[in-house]
Structures are given as C-alpha cells and as structure tokens.
C-alpha cells in the first residue's frame, strides 16, 4: 500500500432510491491511469462524481494517502481536477477570462497561455466563448487541467466532441501528466490510448447488469 494515492473500499452509490453500484473497490497509485468502462447507466459518471466529493458514498470508504476522507472530501479536493459533462464556460466571457477565473490566476499569467497552447486554443484567446464550437469549448475546458497543477485528474468522457487530432493532444497531455507522477481516472466510450492502464468495468458492480447483485441489493434494502 506504500504508494497508494487514492483508494476506495466497498463503495456503494444509491441515487433516487436506485442502487447504481455496490461493493466497488479501487486503488490508484501515483502515475497510474484507471479507465472506467461499462455500458450506459452502469454508474461511471456517478463514480467520478463520488470520487470528486460531490456525491457522498452511502456505504464504503474513500482514502486519500491512507487517510480516511469519506466525510471530509475537502482533504483531497484541492488535489483533484474534475471535468464533467458540462463545460462550466460562461458564454459572454472570453476564452482567456474563462480560464483565468477557474485557475484563480490573473489574465497575464504566462501559464494560462501555455495551457491554451497545449490544446491549440491560443489563437482564440480573446474570442468570446459563445462563438466557440463544441469541440473548442471542450478543449478550453480541458486546458483547465494544465492551468493549475493537481495530482489527480477525474475526467468524465473528456473526448466528447473532440476531433481525432484533439484526442491525440489529450493523450499527449495525459502522458506528460503521468510522467510527472500524476494520476488520471477517466470514463470513455471512444478510445483514448494511454500506456498500460488499469481497467475497471462498472458492469460487474451494477445491479442493473449483474443479476447476482440484485439479490444482495434486495437483501440490503430489507435491512435499510
């Protein structure tokens, strides 16, 4: 367990009275990539939101560097980047203003230019965000990953709307991040290539797809 950075034990997620997944454990070490797989509705987004601390697990534990952080997600929230389905872009602000706001930096900070350049967004720096295409908006959102340094990236379908060249940019950025000891957890339906990833198939933990769990779920419900 020496190099374990982020760990989940027996996590259970219940949303709107329905068990999304149960008994899920994972272990993320420095520099690792964990790919979440599974069909629609198997709980990939729910798991990522849980790992970001937005949703609290009903059962189970989250450990950050061995410390129990289930009740206090603040412990790890300053170390993660969460990128969800929605881009959190304000249409009336320019590309640079949007990025500056979320990174907590001033607009003349050179690291913002660097981050935009990595995703080939530098020429659009002063464009109002409402003129961006959906792929460009996604690239602006992804450049948040580089604008401020965090050790764990949680990406929920990061490549939605991206063209092939942009996916390659993302892969490159993930590679650099891992070479510096950073870790990444992402859910995706389109292939994003990373070197020797760990995989977690949510289907195995979802009562919707794994009929064996249905019995346990009913059993547990009678408890609750």
């Amino acid at each position: 367990m020496g190099n374990s950075l982020f760990q989940g034990e027996d996590l259970t997620c219940i949303r709107g009275g329905r068990t999304v997944f149960l008994g899920l454990s994972f272990n993320l070490a420095q520099g690792q990539a964990l790919i979440l797989e599974g069909p629609n509705g198997s709980g990939k987004s729910s798991l990522i939101r849980m790992l970001s601390g937005l949703v609290r697990p009903k059962l189970g534990k989250l450990l950050w560097q061995g410390q129990d952080a289930t009740k206090e997600p603040e412990i790890f929230q300053s170390h993660i980047h969460y990128i969800g389905h929605r881009n959190a872009i304000k249409p009336v602000l320019t590309v640079l203003e949007n990025l500056a706001y979320w990174s907590g930096k001033t607009k003349d900070d050179p690291s913002l230019d660097d981050a935009l350049d990595h995703f080939r967004m530098l020429p659009l720096k002063h464009t109002p965000a409402n003129l961006l295409s959906s792929g460009q908006s996604r690239r602006l959102t992804l450049s948040r990953l580089l604008a401020s340094e965090r050790s764990v990236w949680l990406l929920d379908e990061p490549s939605v709307g991206l063209d092939v060249a942009s996916v390659a940019l993302l892969e490159e950025v993930i590679k650099t991040h891992r070479s510096k000891g950073g870790s990444v957890i992402f859910a995706t339906h389109s292939p994003i290539h990373v070197e020797n990833p760990n995989r977690l198939n949510l289907q195995d933990y979802s009562p919707l797809y794994n009929k064996e769990l249905l019995a346990i779920e009913n059993d547990e419900e009678s408890w609750i």
Partner: peptide, 16 residues
C-alpha cells in the same frame, strides 16, 4: 440557475 446549468456550480463547490 446559470451556474447550475452550465456546470460552474460543481466547480465552485470543488474549488478551495
């Protein structure tokens, strides 16, 4: 509402 709909709220909650 705008922050809620465009995902800014989630980022605000996650921020320090």
């Amino acid at each position: 509402l705008a922050d809620y709909e465009d995902g800014s709220l989630e980022q605000l909650i996650l921020s320090s």
